[in-house]
């Protein structure tokens, strides 16, 4: 008699896997990667490959030799962390800094907590913030976008629109004056402006967003609430004093907001699980981002905002419960 397999129900599975989700996100990041290769050329390529390779190697070594477990590098999470890390740095960053950043992202932010699923903070962002604080000069001088440049370290550097804004306002320039110095709206859409590798092209990031929604890898809640909160908050500020505060369009399309809202804040592990929780989390990220950008010392605040809200995620999970069946009555 043949032996049958016995297991509790259900007996079928959707075929979802961690791997599929991770590779799905990587695919969604490809348009943005293509744009950065066009505008930052060789530098973008070197930085991206370095980041991915070092993340994967660090994860493998730590899992195999420190934790003495089965390495799970093929699940794609280390590749994704590497890619996102690269997307968050200028393309002319020295290679050794990139490797240090990857070591912090994987070694400290991810593996010390027990690997994928247990990290309280987004590893790529933790690595990025570490680098921003440790190497402030290198992390805030961005190469000027050109078409397929083959220069790497010695690229001509320029400021990001957010940097121009912060500096200009600090000097006491009027907003109308500053607006003439920043790239045009179409340039911002395509990505022809200074900035970190992956954050420049709004169109490429939005294509990725649509892909993620289509593949049902993420839901709309977090990105829409982040962008919505930014739009509303900046609109209020702009309405109150158009000469001191830039409008929603400027804030949404500059800096790492779209990259953060679509790809970093939606990280499964570090974002809340219920829909209401996601909306609260997203809204708070939007608000904190603008608070930092407008009133803080740094020109850009998306990374900090997401990391701050990462810390609140367990609290949100504990107190914001999904709507339960039968709860409405009584």
């Amino acid at each position: 008699m043949s032996k049958f397999i016995v297991s509790p129900s259900p007996h079928i599975h959707s075929g979802n896997s961690v791997q599929k989700s991770m590779y799905g996100v990587i695919v969604a990041l490809l348009p943005a990667l293509a744009v950065s290769l066009v505008f930052f050329g060789l530098g973008a390529l070197i930085i991206t490959l370095t980041a991915i390779l070092s993340c994967v190697i660090f994860e493998y070594v730590i899992q195999k030799y420190l934790l003495k477990g089965e390495p799970t590098i093929l699940d794609g999470s280390a590749i994704l962390t590497g890619l996102l890390l690269a997307f968050n740095v200028p393309s002319n960053l020295p290679i050794w800094m990139m490797v240090v950043g990857a070591a912090v992202a994987i070694g400290i932010a991810k593996m010390t907590f027990g690997g994928l699923g247990n990290n309280p903070f987004n590893p790529a962002l933790a690595g990025r913030v570490f680098m921003l604080i440790s190497f402030p000069v290198h992390m805030t001088s961005w190469p000027k976008p050109e078409i397929l440049p083959l220069t790497y370290i010695d690229a001509v550097t320029g400021a990001t629109p957010l940097g121009i804004m912060k500096e200009g306002l600090a000097k006491g320039d009027s907003l109308t004056n500053i607006m003439t110095q920043i790239p045009s709206f179409t340039d911002m859409l395509i990505g022809k402006m200074g900035g970190s590798l992956g954050e420049i092209s709004a169109i490429a990031l939005l294509i990725g967003f649509v892909y993620l929604l289509w593949k049902k890898i993420i839901t709309w809640h977090i990105p829409v609430s982040v962008i919505g909160a930014v739009a509303i908050f900046t609109a209020i500020l702009h309405g109150a004093n158009p000469q001191a505060y830039a409008g929603p369009v400027f804030h949404i399309f500059t800096g790492g907001l779209l990259l953060g809202a679509i790809f970093m804040a939606t990280d499964y592990v570090t974002s809340p699980m219920s829909k209401t929780g996601m909306l609260i989390y997203g809204t708070m990220i939007g608000v904190i981002t603008i608070l930092i950008r407008v009133f803080g010392a740094y020109p850009e605040g998306v990374s900090f905002a997401i990391l701050i809200m990462n810390a609140f995620t367990p609290l949100i999970n504990k107190y914001i419960k999904p709507k339960r069946y039968g709860e409405i009555l009584k």
Binding site: V18, T72, G114, G117, Y268, S271, M273, R324, Y325, E327
Partner: peptide
């Protein structure tokens, strides 16, 4: 594998738990 806290089970649950 490890729970990655994606929340898919929460979205799928028909009882909202």
């Amino acid at each position: 594998r490890n729970c990655i806290r994606c929340g898919k089970c929460v979205s799928a649950c028909a009882m909202g738990i």
